[in-house]
């Protein structure tokens, strides 16, 4: 029962923060992706960095359970699927998590996104045997690996570098990148602000 309580508390916090950083706002997503307003990208980089530093720092201090890590398998389909998700993310302004939050926040287009998503997931469920047979789901580079070797972890490392120190360093790198990234990279044509009445 306590796991249900945690789901409610962490899930609600996640939904609220996604709203407040603008991740469930398609305007903010496409201003990030067309490089005109990178504040959301800075938030995301800072979030990955913060999470990484706390997790690996906590592991080194013995405060964080290494066993809670859950590393997904690497295979060619991860890249292909990433390309598809990226294209749809830009076109619609939503990804799976932010789409459901946007739906709950009253955005009507998000309802169509979620409906399309349910159909897309169903289409994958039906086509899964073909992907499996294609070999594109076969693991590459060791499969479920971390970049370094994390002490006490059940996952292997891509390299023999100490995974906890590497995680801490990469985490700090993400934080530095968040601060270094400018708020805007390109300027595009502005729309007319005052249409003739």
């Amino acid at each position: 029962m306590s796991s249900i309580l945690l789901a409610v508390v962490i899930g609600a916090a996640f939904g609220a923060v996604l709203d407040r950083v603008g991740a469930s706002n398609p305007n903010a997503i496409n201003r990030m992706l067309n490089l005109t307003d990178l504040r959301l990208a800075k938030s995301i980089l800072l979030a990955i960095g913060t999470g990484s530093v706390l997790m690996f720092g906590g592991q080194m201090l013995g405060l964080v359970e290494v066993g809670h890590m859950s590393v997904k398998t690497a295979y060619a389909g991860v890249f292909l699927g990433g390309l598809m998700l990226g294209a749809g993310w830009a076109a619609s302004g939503y990804c799976p998590g932010t789409g459901v939050v946007a739906l709950a926040s009253g955005r009507k287009d998000a309802l169509f996104f979620v409906a399309g998503g349910l159909l897309g997931a169903a289409a994958y469920m039906l086509s899964y045997p073909a992907w499996k047979a294609s070999g594109l789901l076969d693991k590459i580079a060791g499969g479920a690996v971390t970049l370094g070797t994390v002490p006490g972890s059940r996952y292997e490392g891509l390299t023999a570098l100490p995974g906890d120190i590497l995680g801490l360093v990469l985490g700090l790198g993400f934080v530095a990148l968040a601060f270094a990234l400018p708020e805007r990279l390109v300027r595009r044509e502005a729309t007319q602000t005052a249409p003739a009445e």
């Binding site: 997904k72 699927g81 998700l85 990226g86 294209a87 749809g88 993310w89 076109a91 799976p96 159909l119």
Partner: peptide, 17 residues
Amino acid sequence: VAFLGGFVVLYGARLAG
């Protein structure tokens, strides 16, 4: 576009895992 986008996003997400 939101509907088609949703289709591609979730198909891609499941392919990627």
